[in-house]
Design a protein around this nucleic acid. Structure first.
Lengths: 318, 318
DNA sequence: ATATAATGCGTAATCGTTTACGCAAAACCT
DNA sequence: AGGTTTTGCGTAAACGATTACGCATTATAT
């Protein structure tokens, strides 16, 4: 205590309340000198808010980085750095791996620890988390398509992106297309078919994991069964990389023999040799848009759903 | 209030204090029913701790993901998932970009918001942050080499890793080595030289950015000035990817004409074509080790510095 | 000069837990 | 049965801020 009440000290830091500029300066100076810093827990308790934003995403593996998620996170962080908020990153491993951390995430949200949350669609846990956020009345933004009716969402139009890829293949004289991915990405499949038009008649589907190894396996299986295939759309870039690598190892020329397009346009797609053509979702923009929407929500401003445009980036694999 | 005092409710959840099994069950059940969840801020204030771990790292860019950092984060998260702690990720952009978020990070640490911090060496801000953590008496672990005397550190021996690369080049009959990197990584340079032995006499240094573009530029410049170069050690994998891509574009065969080794062994090194040989730092292990050390520190157990072994992974680029 | 409004700051209640303390009841001795 | 220990739980004091309220003091208006 340096001659003033705690209320005054609080006012000196809070930018609210009435206080003379002189005492504010004095208190700030003294605080600096004494190394005083307002206790964050007391602050949060008293004012019942927080400056932490939670980012929740399905995590495929605890071993391999998920380039898709990382680039979204980068976009979120860019916004947060300018607002002084902090980011908490919460992977949600597949349910098979024990009960998982969902219970602990749930408690954290319910107990008011977060100012808002951003949730990436893709697993059943994502859906549960949205319900928790709603129940706790914590502002939330959903990234991607979830079977939930909500305005707080930013999506990308996979179908249009896939259609662009289909049209490109037709335009560049390809006749034997294949699609490699999971059975869940119906939108991509449907869009691709639309883009291909009549050529869709000869379309081959191949389902497998969304991994590098999955791409390699897909190449081998397709090559054996359907040697006529001359163009491939992959559900993501890592998958495309695996396909391309195995193709080159099998003396198939990319793009001369088979043209390949990936999905997401993650950073390393352009590092690859040949550089991978990709349907760009603009992940960075996706993340930063989600963050901006969340702040609007938190501040009580109206929020409308956003859609990020897909763009087809042609590189050496085509 | 359902007939018991708040103290009893607290005891029902805290696993400490004395409470009969019957009332605990009763309270838990009722809590579930009423959707009660202990307020995290009050908890933290009262018990003056937190379950959040802060992860601070120098961030090169808000646009490009830093694969090095990401894989460390993955390792940290794996440990955290099993302990019920939460991770807060805090990029530290280069100082040039405005004042930066350091002040806000400082306040957060000083105000007791974090149970512990993990700091990646590499910028002047990293050093400041360590000093802040010390001043605030918050448990911390440093990843990498910082000019600070501390036992709370986990490092990797760059020099030994680089020496392995040097020896490999000599053993496989290369005679005109080059090193591409920054002027800061003296350890790598020194180790490489040692590994090369006599061959070090003809070593060419090239300094530039640690980026993909930097690798491409390096290839062009070196090729023009020193066409005799037949093996290259790059300061990281992304740099190596850029070098390789530009080399292939210039009709130089990898590895026949030039053998290339990268550093870090990030995930995509093996996706590349040709797959990039790399000095593996085992980033995942680096992260999980740091997290485990931090928990020891937090629990008051003795902590000794750890060193992660480097390993040379040979792939197609050699 | 007086009335009125604006400003600055201290008092004390509040936020929702945890936990030392104390007392009754139950459990354990001999 | 009487004494001692153990157990279960309520009381109330922290934890360290924020903020409504009220009282001086100063500024503004008439």
């Amino acid at each position: 205590m340096l001659g003033v009440s705690t209320a005054t000290v609080s006012r000196a830091f809070s930018e609210k309340g009435r206080i003379s500029e002189k005492t504010r300066q004095y208190i700030i100076a003294k605080a600096e000198e004494l190394g005083y810093c307002a206790n964050i827990h007391a602050r949060n308790l008293s004012s019942s808010n927080s400056n932490i934003i939670g980012f929740f995403y399905p995590s495929i593996s605890t071993e391999q980085p998920d380039y898709f998620i990382i680039e979204i996170q980068l976009g979120i962080n860019q916004v947060l750095l300018s607002t002084g908020n902090l980011l908490q990153t919460n992977p949600m491993p597949p349910e098979s791996q024990g009960n998982g951390p969902l219970a602990s995430y749930r408690d954290y949200i319910l107990s008011g620890g977060l100012a808002g949350v951003i949730i990436v669609a893709g697993s059943s846990e994502s859906v549960k988390l949205v319900e928790i956020a709603r129940a706790a009345e914590v502002p939330y933004i959903v990234i991607g398509h979830m079977g939930i009716e909500t305005q707080y969402t930013v999506t990308f139009d996979n179908a249009i992106g896939a259609a662009l890829a289909g049209k490109y293949f037709v335009r560049t004289g390809r006749h034997h297309p294949a699609y490699i991915g999971g059975h869940l990405d119906k939108r991509k499949q449907k869009g691709f078919r639309e883009g291909l038009g009549e050529t869709a008649a000869s379309l081959i589907f191949h389902t497998g994991g969304h991994t590098f190894g999955g791409g390699a396996t897909a190449f081998r299986e397709l090559r054996e069964k359907y040697p006529e295939i001359d163009c491939v759309l992959c559900a993501n870039d890592v998958l495309a990389a695996g396909f391309i690598k195995e193709a080159i190892a099998g003396d198939v020329r990319i793009p001369e023999d088979i043209a390949v397009i990936g999905f997401d346009d993650v950073r390393f797609a352009r590092y690859n040799t040949p550089a991978i053509s990709s349907v760009s979702l603009n992940l960075h923009l996706l993340g930063s848009t989600a963050a901006q929407m969340l702040f609007k929500y938190i501040n009580g401003e109206p929020v409308t759903p956003e859609l990020i445009r897909c763009e087809l980036i042609i590189r050496e694999s085509c």
